[in-house]
Structures are given as C-alpha cells and as structure tokens.
Design a protein around this nucleic acid. Structure first.
Lengths: 136, 136
DNA sequence: TATACTGTAATTATAAATATTACAGTTTTA
DNA sequence: TAAAACTGTAATATTTATAATTACAGTATA
C-alpha cells in the first residue's frame, strides 16, 4: 500500500480533531514527520475529490468539507491508492502460455480482491479513526 | 503487493503445467522475463514451506510437492508476502495524539483487511490459475 | 506592502527493488 | 573421473521508485 493513503488518513483525522480552525501544511507535516510539500500534494488529491477545502494566504490552510462520520477509509483509498493492490508483474511473454496470461489472470483476481478489501475499509470512518487515536 | 507473489504464482503454475519433468530456474526465469537468481530466491521460500521440492545437479530443477488443486493463492501469499498490505507509515510522533497512534490504529485495520483479502485469495488454486491461463 | 499561506514544477537525495557476478556444493553422464 | 548442468547463497552493482528540497508564482490578511 502506498504512503499517500496513510498520510491522507492522518491529515483528515487531524482536521477532524480541530474542526474549529484550519490546519496549515506545515502543521500537518510536523504531526506526520514528513515534508510539507508532500502533504500539499496528497491534500491536493483530497481537495479535487471534494473531501476537503483549502484557503490560501495568511491564516489559511485546510478544513474538512464533509462531516468525519461520513468519510470512510474506502473513500480515501479510492482517491489516493486505487489499483495499488495489484501485484507487480513482469512484462507479458508471448512465447509461453503461462507467461502470456499471468498478468491478466492475476489482474482480475486482484481487482475482485480490491473490492472485497474495500468493503472492509468502508466500515471505518475518519471519526472512528479519531476516536481510536484519542482513546489510546 | 510485492513481486515475489506473482513470481511465485507464475512458477507454481508453470510447474503444474509440466508435471512430468522438473523445471530449471533458467527455464522459469525466461518464462517470467526475470533473472534466474531471483527465481531461485523466491522458490527457496516456497521450498522451505513445503510447496515444492528441488533437485540439484544436471537434470535437476523444481517440481511441485503437492497437487496444484490443493495449493491456493492465499497459501502462496502467506509464504511470500505476509504483512505487505500494511500501509507505509511515518515514525510515531509522541507530540501529537494523532501522530502517536495512527500507525497502530491503521495497523489493526489492515491486519483484519489482510484476513478478509486472504479469504478471497483462498478461493483460487494453482490449478485454477493454470486453467485460466490455458483457456485464454 | 510585508507576512503567511497554497499550488506546483523541477531538481536532488535516499531507499528499495532488481540484476549481475561469483563461487561452493550436488548430481548426471560421457 | 572429469566435464557439464544444475541449486544455493552471498556480495555487489544497477536501476527504479520514493521522498525531500528548492524555487517561485499566486492569494489572502493585517
């Protein structure tokens, strides 16, 4: 699983944690121990898909655009990581009936698998994540 | 998903395809378009877990040690890729209630998710993979 | 108009994956 | 019994993928 996903969940959870004021990329980056530009890239994806809003200029930053109870990890996964479950396969080899088809065959198994995995992720919301973090 | 998995499935399917004679790492490597040493490393894992047998020396190579109908993709996954579903998380940040716990919280979500995903993989055997490859 | 932000592109640095080389050990076969 | 064809594995080099850094234009605030 790529790291965009965990950074996105982290950021959204942080925004849910302080719904009253916007969080800057620097603030989020320090919480996640990564570079602010990386946060801005990930949040750019979330913004494009309507999960957050941003405001430029002094005092600006990021806020949730939907209640954290309504955003699931599956929603986030689809924005940041769709298709990454797929196993890396070497190029197709036309000289071998196995080598020629393995990529396609495994591809369909993993596409279905991603859906099954998604049903699991869909059970958890950003609000759940916040609750789990705080009660620990 | 790491590439060990797809190389392992590829190799096992190839062995199932020619049950009569052993396949050398060079033969498998050519079918999968990768380096023979890499194949030997992956097959070493499968051998340790009793999925295949190997024979050194001239005319040697690899053969299945169990019928391909009895080996599922979940069996292979557990040998080659257990834990790789886990998202990459930055180091824990003790100064932030979210940053301190996110890794653990996501960890448990993905451990359960791996199990769910495993139930899906468990539906497919190496024999199924061979059939799918050949009828394509 | 200085300051504190987002947005994004370009570049550099680091880490991970993969290939390559090397060589010891094991069978077969000529 | 020696050459050939293999596995097994470690060490190194190369390539690719990730991540950090730098740079700078644009925007809102005070």
């Amino acid at each position: 699983m790529n790291s965009h996903f965990s950074l996105a969940v982290h950021s959204l959870t942080l925004l849910a944690h302080q719904p009253e004021n916007a969080a800057s990329s620097t603030f989020i980056a320090e919480s996640a121990s990564v570079h602010p530009v990386r946060i801005r890239k990930v949040l750019s994806m979330l913004k494009q898909h309507g999960l957050i809003q941003s405001k430029e200029g002094a005092g600006g930053g990021f806020v949730l655009s939907r209640p954290p109870e309504s955003v699931t990890l599956w929603d986030v996964y689809q924005v940041t990581s769709k298709g990454t479950l797929q196993p890396r396969c070497p190029d197709e080899n036309p000289d071998c009936s196995v080598g020629a088809n393995m990529k396609t065959v495994l591809g369909s198994v993993f596409s279905e698998g991603e859906y099954v995995f998604g049903e699991h992720l869909d059970q958890f919301t950003i609000a759940d994540m916040l609750k789990k973090c705080i009660t620990n």
